[in-house]
């Protein structure tokens, strides 16, 4: 623990290990970002070229490649990764359930339902993003309506969420069978989660939501750590538990929905990033900042792999996160089993 105190009575406290993890992740993000913007494809650029272009000294072709193709894709990847990881960290902490994530609760499926409705009925990219956001929010409201009267806590929310997810998966299957062949292909690509062709139109709304929800998340961050002690202990210590839970879950639902709208339901990032962050920091609690950075690194790295893994053929990023995230989860469970912890 490190403490900084000022004569005015202000004091800040942080864990050295958590600070190191945050610094490390931020540096990794920067390096990956340079690789993503500079790298590969039909027009490789050195880091120096990238920096020159970013500061306004590039050729028109370079300006276009960086400013309109690679940079917005990178920013979308960073923002989607951070948003999903934050949503996952908040949900896991609030529900005191390590498997809590937007996928398990049906938020992602709700976003997919919204998107599929637009695919079947026809509509542009922006309509699709709007409908996906609305779908995720509607799923969240449905869960709140069913469980809300008794408080948005614990196992009941998970069970209701699993039910909502199952129903929506059925609805989504039905919508897919109703789609024309071309539309179905587009729908399946969206359902896998992909960053292909993502531009500022996807990145900016997501950045806006991230900017708006960050103060709320970190403002309630200490309250969130306290609720992990149980509702009674948290209330006794003066945490406004009901208000904090509503605000935090609302923000998580919004982040997950907007992230899904931007890149499709990219799997496993929301579930894996908070786990990974906790293992790195070894700190109890939601580890919000570390989770967000780990999520951003994960998604940018996964997108680099998706673009480069198979020569001449790009994979959707959701395939990579699914394979890597799934493998990590299996390894984690096996490691815990060996360590004798459930």
């Amino acid at each position: 623990m490190s403490v900084l105190r000022t004569p005015g009575g202000l004091s800040l406290r942080w864990r050295r290990r958590s600070a190191a993890v945050v610094t490390g992740c931020a540096s990794a993000t920067l390096l990956l970002a340079l690789a993503a913007v500079g790298g590969g494809g039909d027009h490789p650029m050195s880091p120096a070229d990238v920096l020159r272009t970013l500061t306004g000294g590039g050729s028109p072709a370079e300006e276009f490649i960086v400013g309109e193709l690679r940079l917005p894709r990178l920013v979308t990847a960073l923002a989607v990764g951070a948003a999903l990881a934050l949503a996952g960290a908040v949900v896991q902490s609030l529900l005191r359930n390590p498997l809590g994530s937007p996928d398990v609760l049906g938020l992602t499926q709700g976003a997919a339902t919204g998107a599929l409705v637009v695919v079947v009925l026809g509509g542009g990219t922006l309509t699709l993003a709007g409908a996906a956001t609305a779908g995720g929010l509607a799923a969240g409201l449905l869960i709140a309506a069913v469980t809300g009267r008794r408080g948005l806590a614990g196992a009941r929310v998970v069970l209701v969420g699993i039910g909502v997810a199952a129903i929506l998966t059925g609805v989504n299957g039905w919508l897919l069978t109703r789609a024309q062949l071309m539309d179905a292909a587009r729908a399946v690509l969206w359902l896998t989660g992909s960053l292909d062709g993502r531009g500022w139109a996807q990145a900016l709304p997501l950045l806006g939501v991230l900017a708006a929800s960050t103060p709320l998340l970190f403002g309630y961050g200490r309250a969130l750590s306290m609720t992990e002690l149980g509702d009674e202990a948290a209330i006794a210590a003066g945490v406004p538990v009901r208000r904090a839970r509503r605000a935090l879950l609302g923000a998580a639902v919004l982040l997950a929905s907007v992230a899904a709208a931007a890149a499709g339901p990219v799997s496993f990032v929301a579930l894996t990033a908070p786990h990974l962050a906790r293992r790195l920091t070894r700190a109890p609690g939601p580890n919000l900042l570390a989770s967000a950075l780990v999520g951003a690194v994960l998604l940018v790295a996964a997108d680099l792999v998706a673009q480069r893994a198979v020569e001449g053929r790009q994979l959707p990023v959701g395939v990579v996160t699914g394979v890597l995230g799934g493998a990590y989860l299996v390894w984690l469970l096996a490691a815990q089993r060996r360590a004798g912890r459930s």
Binding site: R96, L229, P284
Partner: peptide, 28 residues
């Protein structure tokens, strides 16, 4: 009550200070 995984005694006890703390007054 629930002790989060791996929380130390000192960390648990220090959480009792919550009602005396704030965003910019984390550890007087």
């Amino acid at each position: 009550s629930v002790a989060p995984d791996g929380i130390t005694v000192a960390d648990l006890v220090s959480r009792g200070r919550y009602p005396h703390q704030g965003l910019l007054r984390q550890w007087s």
